[in-house]
Nucleic acid binder design. Structure first.
Lengths: 207, 207
DNA sequence: CTACTCTGGATAGTACAGGTATCCAACACT
DNA sequence: AGTGTTGGATACCTGTACTATCCAGAGTAG
């Protein structure tokens, strides 16, 4: 398929496709002579991925680039790849940032024993907890424990679903699952709040 | 306190404080004569809130403005305020957007019966599910059910914690809790994935 | 073979967000 | 009286993500 086909299949404007090619987000097509390149299904999929990460997961293109690079050239180790993908997700963390993370450490203990205390997600959690505290909504031990239990149960399901065998597939699945499912969970949580609040109001109204 | 005190207390640069005043994110101080205004603790808190929503929850200032407006002038109804706050949270949804939401409706049924099928969060969920599907990670019925159960349990706890009595406080708490806790949950989920994956690897290594 | 279309590649321009910097005249403190 | 701060206005700057043009060579239809 030529570049015009890519435009037709994905709905992404030509100028934007060229821009993604220039920026290295989309790999070049197979060159056929000096003035023609052909593109395949992998380019269609890649464009869908870029748009999904940009529009739905709200990632700046620089971070999308990091993530597609991880999928194209995965680290040997699944955990290593996942760690780097998480580091590419917002909110950004300074490169030289390091602990201690007084708020995050207590919460991490509720989640489980195998957490790397130096990982990016610890810094992200610390910042998120500090922000909550700064507006007067610090996390209680009770809430931390409850959230940890439920999120760990969901994580266990997620990890059990990771396809085993093909290492590349496993990495792609994990990296994408982390980024793409966060908005799903956020939206489901918002709906759950709505449901609980409306149910409570309706019960009160019935009384 | 004068404007310089505000700068000192919050660490936000003077030019930026002036910018927030211009943009109506920060209410003006109490004018004392033509060339001096005084600011209070509420201004310090408001600045912390703006920075938390901007940096941690990753909201553009236009959405921060919507949220602070909801806190300053809450709707009569808690549910109404919450709905508007959720609509201000990313990802953005077109104003004229309406159902049906084929993917979201199935998932919403797992969460509970009292969900408004026309709410913004339904559109957000639909888009997030469509994005997941477009990269080959469509949600399974099993995953939807499991996520729904855990998120509803967390939501029940959240709603139970909302301070009753003072309506303004309840709205502030709910609106902020929705926005400020999403990054906390995302970070905890990332840590839970890490913990589960590392535990599994360590078990395999011990064998 | 000619006319038209499409292509890759380069370059420039646009739109918006979110500041940052400067200038000024009117006060306030010392 | 002199110095410093303030509110207010305006201009400017940086980064992100495109969007638009232009060009010359290649393919393609009649």
């Amino acid at each position: 398929m030529r570049i015009s086909g890519l435009v037709e299949r994905t709905g992404v404007p030509l100028a934007t496709v060229k821009y993604y090619l220039r920026e290295g987000l989309l790999p070049p097509g197979r060159a056929v002579g000096a003035k023609l390149s052909l593109y395949g299904e992998e380019h269609v999929r890649r464009l869908a991925l870029i748009r999904a990460l940009r529009d739905t997961a709200n990632l700046p293109l620089a971070r999308v680039r990091t993530i597609v690079a991880l999928i194209d050239e995965p680290a040997d180790d699944l955990l290593e790849s996942l760690g780097r993908a998480v580091a590419a997700l917002p909110p950004a963390v300074a490169d030289d940032r390091q602990g201690p993370y007084p708020r995050a450490e207590g919460v991490a203990r509720e989640i489980g024993p195998a957490i790397d205390p130096g990982s990016t997600a610890m810094a992200q959690l610390e910042d998120a907890l500090a922000a909550a505290e700064s507006v007067g909504l610090g996390i209680s031990a009770e809430r931390a424990r409850l959230y940890a239990q439920h999120l760990r149960a969901m994580a266990e399901f997620d990890i059990a679903q990771v396809p085993t065998g093909d290492r590349g597939r496993a990495i792609e699945y994990s990296v994408l699952g982390t980024a793409i499912y966060e908005p799903v969970i956020a939206a489901m949580r918002r709906l759950a709040h709505q449901d609980v609040a409306r149910s409570a109001r309706d019960d009160a109204g019935d009384r």
